[in-house]
Simulated scan of single mutants.
Amino acid sequence: MRGLSTGQVILLVVLGAVLILTAVWGASVWGASAGVEMGKHGWIALGLGTFFSLLIGCGLMALMFFSSRSGHDDAADPFRQRERRDP
């Protein structure tokens, strides 16, 4: 296994810093909104948003899976060697 290059180390440090900053920001927002109550319209919006986000995500993943299995993506990849099928 080869060592990491300087660019890869810098990228890992930057991504780690972004992860830490995001966690600190999330914890501060969570703590700042501790006393806020959400009404029934907020819960409905949260539920619908979650449902439709999952629906769209699962639908797009299914389309990607079926597209790769059906061979439609083969023409878009000129570097992939095609398998020869004997009749």
Rank of each mutant, 00 (worst) to 15 (best):
S70K: 09
R82N: 14
Q8K: 13
G49Y: 03
V18S: 11
R85Y: 08
H72M: 04
G31I: 09
I10A: 13
A76C: 01
A27F: 09
R80P: 02
C58G: 06
L4M: 15
H72Y: 12
L48Y: 04
G35K: 07
G3F: 11
L4E: 08
E83N: 11
L4G: 00
L48W: 06
V13K: 15
L46G: 07
P87M: 06
H72C: 08
L46W: 10
V29N: 01
D73N: 14
F52A: 07
E37G: 06
Q81M: 09
A17F: 10
G42E: 03
T50I: 12
V36W: 07
A75F: 13
F66K: 00
M1Q: 05
C58E: 02
V29Q: 12
D73L: 13
G35F: 13
Q81V: 15
G42V: 01
M1E: 07
G26D: 07
V29H: 00
W43D: 11
A23R: 11
S53K: 08
L55A: 15
P87F: 12
L21I: 13
G16M: 05
E83Y: 00
G39W: 02
D74A: 11
Q81W: 09
C58M: 13
W25M: 10
G16D: 03
G31M: 08
S28G: 02
L55I: 06
T6H: 00
T6S: 14
W30Y: 15
W25D: 10
L4I: 03
L63M: 03
R2Y: 07
M64E: 06
S53Y: 13
G35N: 12
S33N: 15
A34Q: 15
L48N: 02
T50Q: 07
G7M: 03
D73Q: 09
L55G: 02
V24G: 04
E83F: 09
S28H: 03
F65Q: 06
W43P: 01
L4R: 12
L54Y: 10
